[in-house]
């Protein structure tokens, strides 16, 4: 059965690595639903969070293939239930609509969103949450004609008390040192 999986990849910071990782998906005709890349807590180590819809059998194989890439340190996969994750969304609405009634203000309050910037022409609202939540806010705000909308890729943390990567890197360093 297909479902959403979150693949986390820790890698060295090398040019072309993103392409090498996406090739693993392209080759199997798997669409990437969302992708976030940034430096992890460990300096020089980059973290990719990739969301795909597929079967568990397939995601296991994909993670194996990604881990095989020379510049990849480690790859994991998790279901949504195993993670705490958020996406951020920005909405640009006409400022006029804010003055016409207090509806937008109520929507912002009730949805836990916040206003980032107000200009004469437009107001920018920010909301973090799961896709369904940011999408629901979009539907609500769109009655006032959202001028622009953007949603980020996913950021996610495991429920483990520690980052598994630091443990992994310690083991890896010990292993490499044992080879000397």
């Amino acid at each position: 059965m297909k479902q959403e999986f979150n693949i986390t990849v820790f890698s060295e910071n090398h040019i072309g690595l993103l392409a090498r990782i996406t090739i693993v998906f392209t080759r199997r005709k798997i669409n990437i639903e969302s992708l976030t890349v940034s430096e992890s807590a460990i300096s020089g180590v980059y973290k990719f969070t990739i969301v795909i819809k597929t079967t568990e059998d397939q995601v296991k194989k994909v993670v194996s293939q990604i881990e095989k890439i020379v510049d990849v340190l480690k790859a994991f996969y998790h279901t949504n239930q195993e993670l705490i994750y958020q996406e951020i969304a920005l909405y640009k609405v006409p400022t006029d609509a804010l003055y016409d009634s207090d509806q937008i203000e109520n929507i912002v309050r009730n949805s836990g969103a916040r206003i980032l910037e107000i200009t004469r022409e437009f107001t920018v609202i920010e909301k973090t949450g799961h896709k369904e939540e940011t999408q629901a806010l979009f539907e609500q705000l769109n009655q006032f004609k959202v001028m622009q909308f953007i949603r980020s890729g996913r950021v996610a943390l495991t429920r483990d008390p520690i980052e598994r990567l630091s443990e992994f890197l310690k083991e890896r360093d010990a292993f490499l040192n044992s080879m000397d």
């Binding site: 060295e12 020379v70 510049d71 990849v72 340190l73 890896r172 360093d173 490499l176 080879m179």
Partner: peptide, 8 residues
């Protein structure tokens, strides 16, 4: 080269 951190 004898080892690479990301490659075992």
């Amino acid at each position: 080269c004898k080892k690479i951190r990301s490659y075992v």
